[in-house]
Simulated assay, not measured.
Amino acid sequence: MKKSLMTLALTATMGTVLAQSPAHASAPTAVRTAASAKVSVDAQAVNPYAGTSKWRLMSTASDVDGDGTIDGISIRRKSANVCSVRVTMGTRVAGTKDLYTSWGNPCVYHGDAPIDPVKGSEISILTGMGAHTAWHSIVTWRNGRLVLERSPIRPQWTVDSTVMVQEGVRRTRNANGEIRLVHTGVTRGNGNRWGGQAETYAYRNGKWVISARKQVVLSDAAASRVGGWHVRYLPRFNR
């Protein structure tokens, strides 16, 4: 029986720590949004995965609510397993969102970018980190508040890249120009061939749903391009 993407991710994380693949090692430099993000000195902590209890300004180059003006994004560690996100609009705090962390309990700003079809940028926060699997919580602005934008199969979104596992999310459009996300997870088999599953997500009624699913077989070269985020303005992997 073929393993689900959930099983692949959990197996990869809980198993023996594997060497990182060339795809992971050569992850491209992050692309900035409209203007260069301003990061506070506090964000350059010795252990950035741990986070701090103080608010850290991560970006002043983002339009979170889609009104055409620049908003500020800050994060802080609220408790041992809670990471908080705050968005400021002008001089006021527009909203905050608490995110539960797991697998090492990181609290790390990954980036922000338009992901769904609604105007405004979504905010990606690293809230789980296993041996090599990364869990991201996506926060978006809806009806005047910050909310969690779940994947169709779990609250968080997972990506991975090792010599045995590749998992990633790619933003694309279908033939009608509608935005889709393709979540692919593959494992290395015999003869340098990789096999797994690709799920296509459509955004309907305010949430992502699975609209298609297929089995895939990939070469080494094709598999090396799967891992990580493939969304404009988001780094492929956390730096």
Rank of each mutant, 00 (worst) to 15 (best):
M1F: 10
S4V: 07
T11M: 11
T13P: 09
G15R: 02
T16P: 12
Q20G: 13
H24F: 15
A27H: 13
P28T: 00
T29A: 10
V31F: 09
A35L: 08
V39F: 08
S40C: 12
S40Q: 13
V41Y: 12
D42Y: 10
Q44K: 15
M58S: 09
M58Q: 14
M58W: 07
D63Y: 02
V64K: 03
G68A: 02
T69Y: 10
I70K: 06
G72A: 14
G72C: 13
I75D: 03
R76V: 06
R77E: 01
S79K: 03
C83A: 05
R86G: 05
G90F: 01
T91E: 11
G95S: 15
T96A: 04
K97H: 12
D98C: 02
G104F: 01
N105H: 09
P106C: 00
P106Y: 05
C107D: 05
V108R: 10
Y109G: 02
Y109V: 02
G111R: 01
A113P: 00
A113N: 05
P114W: 01
D116H: 07
G120E: 04
S121G: 13
I123W: 04
S124L: 12
G128P: 04
M129S: 14
A131V: 12
A134L: 15
S137W: 05
I138G: 02
W141G: 03
R142N: 11
N143I: 03
R145F: 14
E149T: 15
R150H: 14
I153D: 13
Q156A: 08
V159K: 06
V165H: 14
V169I: 08
R170Q: 15
T172G: 01
N176Y: 12
G177K: 09
R180E: 07
L181P: 00
L181V: 03
T184I: 01
T184M: 06
T184G: 03
V186D: 00
R188Y: 04
N192S: 07
Q197I: 15
E199W: 08
T200I: 08
Y201V: 00
A202L: 10
N205H: 13
A212I: 10
K214V: 09
V216Y: 04
V216F: 03
S224T: 11
S224H: 12
S224I: 09
V231S: 01
L234P: 00
